[in-house]
């Protein structure tokens, strides 16, 4: 159930992503890890997209990374963001390697304040009883 007034899309976990979303619910960023490559990957599936090994496990990530790139969205293409433009979308490259698509929060949507390669850390937004969204803020 969405919280009152939450009008943005709410993710529907799939069997292979259930562990990820459970981690988020506990405000922890858990990531799939390939035992053969000894590397993290994203998004979740039951095998490694680099080597097609099905010998995988879940590991808790550090929640830290850098802004690989970003954009400042000035147009609300969906009613859920109507009152929030401009806002920042970004790809965060986690210290563990994979990139997450996310929002940078707690900063003015101003290119003078944000840059690629800036260090960031995860922060969770509880949007429903079951779902918390990992977003990122600048590390001061």
């Amino acid at each position: 159930m969405s919280q009152d007034g939450y009008r943005k899309p709410v993710p529907t976990p799939s069997p292979e992503s259930k562990r990820y979303w459970e981690g988020c619910r506990n405000h922890e960023l858990w990531l799939p890890f390939c035992r053969d490559c000894e590397a993290f990957y994203f998004y979740p599936r039951d095998f490694c997209p680099s080597c097609f090994s099905w010998d995988i496990e879940w590991r808790k990530g550090s929640g830290r990374g850098r802004i690989y790139t970003y954009a400042i969205q000035h147009r609300a293409w969906h009613p859920g963001w109507q009152d929030e433009v401009p806002y920042v979308t970004a790809l965060v490259q986690l210290d563990e390697g994979p990139r997450l698509y996310t929002n940078i929060v707690g900063v003015d949507p101003d290119p003078a304040q944000i840059d690629c390669d800036m260090p960031v850390e995860v922060t969770f937004e509880d949007i429903t009883e079951e779902i918390s969204l990992p977003k990122f803020r600048l590390v001061s």
Binding site: K8, P9, V10, P11, T12, P13, S14, S17, F42, Y43, T69, Y70, A71, Q73, R75, W77, H78, G80, W81, T89, A90, L91, L100, Y101, T102, N103, I127, L133, K135
Partner: peptide, 19 residues
Amino acid sequence: AQFEMPYHVGGAPTHYAMA
């Protein structure tokens, strides 16, 4: 739908802008 749209829904400009 799980890993992008909760953060933004929009047309091509969004993603090309990030590139």
